[in-house]
Structure formats: C-alpha cells, structure tokens
Amino acid sequence: MVKKSASEWTIEVASLRRLLHNAFHMRFRKHLYVIFLIGTMLCPAIIWLLPFLLQRSPFYLIARLAFSALCHQQPDRSFVVNGMLMMVCARCAAIYTGLPIGVFFCAPVFKWVRKLQPSKLQSERIPISPGGVAVFISALPAAFELAAEKLGFPTGNLSRFFATFPFGTALGLIAGHFLRTTSLETERTIVMTGALRQLKQGSVT
C-alpha cells in the first residue's frame, strides 16, 4: 500500500471540503424558495393556532416569551383568540400572515407584471423598480393608519391588521420572486453541469 505524504493528504482534504461545500451550497440554493415558503407558513400557523392548541398548557407562556424579542406584545394592541392573547400585536400578525401569501403567489403575480412591460414604466432619469414601487404603495395604508392613530382618530386592532396586511404581502411577493429565480437558476446550473460532465465522459453522443 502506497503511503501518502502530508501535502497529498492536505490536497485531498481540501478537495473533499470543496466538494462538500459545493454540494451543500447548490442543494441549499436549489431549495431556498421552498425552505423560505415553509418558514413563512410556520409563522402564521404558530401565532393563530397556539392560542387554540395551548390554551391549557404552560407552553403558551413560554411561546409568548419567545416572541417577545421581536414584538412589544401590548395586550390592548393584540387580538384575543379563544380567550387568550395572541403571540404578537395586530400589525406583526398582519405581516406574518401576509408574507406566505405573497411568497406563494409570487409566480403568477410576476407573470402578470411582466405582461405589463415594466420597462416602459421605468424612467431613465429616476431608477424606479416595480418591486420598490409595490413595497412603497403597500406601505401607504399602514402609514396612513399610523398617522390617523397619532392624530387621535379612532382606530382598532382590525384596522391595524388590514392596513399592514398589504405590506406583508408585498414583502413576500418580492422576496419570493427573487428566491424562486435563484432556485430555478441553480437547478438549471446543476442540470447543465451534469450534461457537460456526461459530454466530457463521452456517454452522450
């Protein structure tokens, strides 16, 4: 048996690490859209279902504690579901609920946007992207609602929810579009790399 020198071992380990890195990287990128979609679907499931599932469980308090790093959780600004406070405030609930809807429907929506030929809408002087415009417009109801609240107009949790919901959906649409494009491009790259390898080996005539 031929003994390998230290430098040969180093090269082998380095190539193995590169191989593992590439495999993980490409596989992860390929499924990035699906991973993100599942993650965003878990959020509304947790916040809407836990008050039902954990009404008689101490885990409810712990789940609320876990969400406290990301939301103020003020009782007067949160929905009461099944006699229990929701994990997050009404505005956060709207964002968490809108995100998966946007991510799920990004493909048909962007197909429709492409039909509108957004290049014609873009100005040469001001670089406007359709995504940026969508986020800006969708944030307007939330901004108006916030302004109305500060000015002393009567607002409630329902108005907070429905004013912020379009913003969450728009965020989901844009994030979903970019991630879906990345996943599709990665899949194409994997297929092309495989075909090239087969061509090199001469198995494809």
Partner: peptide, 17 residues
C-alpha cells in the same frame, strides 16, 4: 430548559425569515 428550547425554535424561524 423548556424556555431555552422554545426560544431557539421560534427565534430560529423568525430570525432566518
């Protein structure tokens, strides 16, 4: 221990999103 596990799961999902 329950608090630590719950916080890790919930913040893992939300922070990654």
């Amino acid at each position: 221990l329950t608090i630590i596990i719950a916080v890790l799961i919930v913040s893992g999902i939300l922070f990654s999103i």
